[in-house]
Amino acid sequence: MARTIPSSAGRAGGPGRLHELALRHSGIAVTSVKEKLIYRFDFFLSLVITLITMTLLSFLWRAIYRNATAIDLPFQALLTYICLGQAFSFNRIAWPQRRLMFRVGGSIRSGNIVFDLLRPTDYQAMQFSEVLGLYVTEMALINLPAYLFALVVFGISPPVSPVAAAGFALALVGAFLLAFSLDFLLSIIAFWTFSAGGIIYGKKALLDLLAGSIVPLTLFPDWLRAVALVLPFQGLGYTPIAIYLGQIDGAAIWGSLLVQLVWAAALVLLTRLVWLRALRRLVVQGG
C-alpha cells in the first residue's frame, strides 16, 4: 500500500544540496518577478516618475547654482550625483520596496503564511530571493534606462575610473542588503502596529534626507552630516554615488564598503532576531 518516497526528496548532500538551493531560490525569484511583471505599467510609471524627478531636481539645482557662489562642488559633479541618486534609488515606492510590506504582514493577517512556513526552506531566505528578483528587474527596467537617459540627455559623467565603477557596483550590492533588511524589519513593525502605509511614507521621507541622494551629504550642515555619517542609511545613496564620483577613492573605497557591509551584516542579524521572535510568537501563540 504505502509507496516509497521519491528519491529526489532531500537526499543529496554537498554539491547536490547547493544545486537544490539554487534551483529553489531561482524559482522563488523568477515567480515573484513574473507575478509583478503583470503590473508592467507600474514599472513603466516608476521609470517615468524617476525621469521627471531627475529633471525637476536638475532644474532646481541649476537655479541654485546660478545664484550661489559659495558651493565648492562643481556643477557637473553635482548634476551627476543627483541623477545617480534618482537612477539608482533604493527609496522609490515601487514593487521591490512595497513587496515585503504587503507580503509579510498581509500573509500573517490572512493566515496564508502557514503555507510559507510549510516550505522546506527558511521564510526569510524566501523573502530575500523574492525581493532580490524584484530589485534585479528594477535594475533592468528602471535604473539602467534612467541612467542611460541621464548620460545622453543631461550629459552626466561616467565613473571616474574602472576601480570607481567596480566599487560602485559592489556598493549597490551592499545597499541592496541594507534595503532588504530595513524593509523586512519595517514590515514586521508594520504588522504589529497595523500601519503599513504610514511606515512606507515615513521611511521614504527619512531616507530621502539621510541617504543623501537628493541633497549630497557634503552640502549638509556639519551637525546633520555628522548624524548621517554615523547612521546606516548613507549606504543606500551617498556611499555608492561618492565612490562613482571619486569623492571617496583609493583605500577609502574599501573603508566605506566595509562600513556599509558591517551595517548590512548588523541589520541582517537584527532582522533575523526580530523575525525569529515573530516566528516564535506565530508558532507558539498562533499569530
Binding site: P6, S8, L23, G27, E35
Partner: peptide, 29 residues
C-alpha cells in the same frame, strides 16, 4: 496540506506557475 479557507496559489499568475515553483521548491525531477 489544503486549507479550504486559505490559498497557496500565486494569485496573479496561472496555477501552472505555482506548480512549477513547487517543483523547484521540492526538487521534483
Amino acid at each position: 496540506v489544503v486549507f479550504g479557507q486559505r490559498s497557496q496559489l500565486v494569485y496573479d499568475l496561472p496555477p501552472r506557475d505555482t506548480f512549477e515553483l513547487l517543483r523547484k521548491m521540492y526538487t521534483v525531477p
